[in-house]
């Protein structure tokens, strides 16, 4: 564990110097702001593009602020996750493939510290991105529409953070297990999207799936999810995160011999 600090510093420097610490949150903030703004201007946009006869009035009921925040999650579920998966697909596979890992692996390296340092920094940046993006969305929704109860917002964002941490854990485990970054990204994407697809098709019958966490997060904004279902899903998600991390540590040790010498 003494190595954790040393390795975390290395990862921190990498993410600072390849600007991931800046551009990933910037993307999340951008999509967070754009959702309430487009909603605000939607009547005008429809007005200008729609060739309606004079005098026709479009009546669009103003959206509920909770709906807008939930729609931001919808953006993150697609673009946000794609960005995170692509940004961190090479974390371990890339180091092995380029051979930069060799000079670490030849030392008495703790693979637990090695994997954890990478998991911590990717998780940290993902959480910073999600929170800054959602806070921006919250603020804009407040300015353009109405205020959402702040406690509800905190519950909403915290719940979604668990899901995004699960996604990050899956990417890093895939990067530890697979021979190259592209393969790792493909598998991580497949796992995440197939799980969502499966839940969409069959999930009506079980309510404790961790894939439902984004939905539960959005439900906090209104009246909250069914408590028992929510806590079970959350517990299972945390368990899956722990399993992905353990698997990642094990795979990064097992695949160390594949580093380019």
């Amino acid at each position: 564990m003494k190595q954790l600090g040393v390795l975390f510093q290395k990862e921190w420097r990498e993410n600072l110097r390849n600007y991931k610490i800046f551009w990933i949150p910037a993307v999340f903030i951008l999509f967070g702001i754009m959702e309430p703004v487009t909603n605000y201007f939607l009547p005008q946009i429809l007005d200008s593009v729609g060739n309606l006869p004079d005098g026709a009035v479009i009546e669009i009921p103003p959206p509920e602020p909770a709906q807008i925040l939930a729609a931001v999650l919808g953006q993150y579920q697609l673009i946000g996750m794609l960005v995170l998966i692509l940004a961190y697909m090479g974390t371990i596979a890339g180091e092995r493939k380029s051979g930069t890992a060799t000079l670490l692996y030849v030392r008495p390296l703790s693979f637990t510290s090695y994997f954890l340092s990478k998991w911590m920094i990717a998780g940290l940046i993902a959480i910073i991105s999600v929170w800054s993006g959602l806070l921006a969305a919250y603020y804009y929704t407040f300015l353009l529409f109405e205020q959402v109860d702040f406690v509800k917002f905190i519950q909403f964002a915290a719940t979604y953070s668990v899901w995004i941490l699960l996604v990050v854990s899956i990417v890093l485990a895939a990067s530890a297990a697979l021979p190259n970054p592209g393969f790792a990204a493909a598998v991580a994407l497949a796992v995440v999207f197939l799980a969502q697809l499966g839940d969409g098709l069959l999930g009506a019958y079980w309510t404790v799936s961790p894939v439902k966490i984004p939905n539960y997060a959005a439900q906090w904004l209104v009246d909250g999810p069914v408590r028992a279902d929510f806590w079970w899903a959350l517990g299972i998600a945390l368990l899956l995160i722990a399993m992905a991390v353990t698997f990642g540590v094990w795979m990064s040790r097992k695949n160390a011999a594949d580093t380019k010498v």
Binding site: A26, I29, I33, V37, L143
Partner: peptide, 22 residues
């Protein structure tokens, strides 16, 4: 909730700035 036009421009500014910064 009505907004002054100037205020709206200020609201849109961050979007432009972040895109420009990226």
């Amino acid at each position: 909730m009505a907004m002054e036009e100037m205020d709206l421009l200020w609201l849109l500014l961050p979007i432009v700035l972040i895109q420009l910064a990226l």
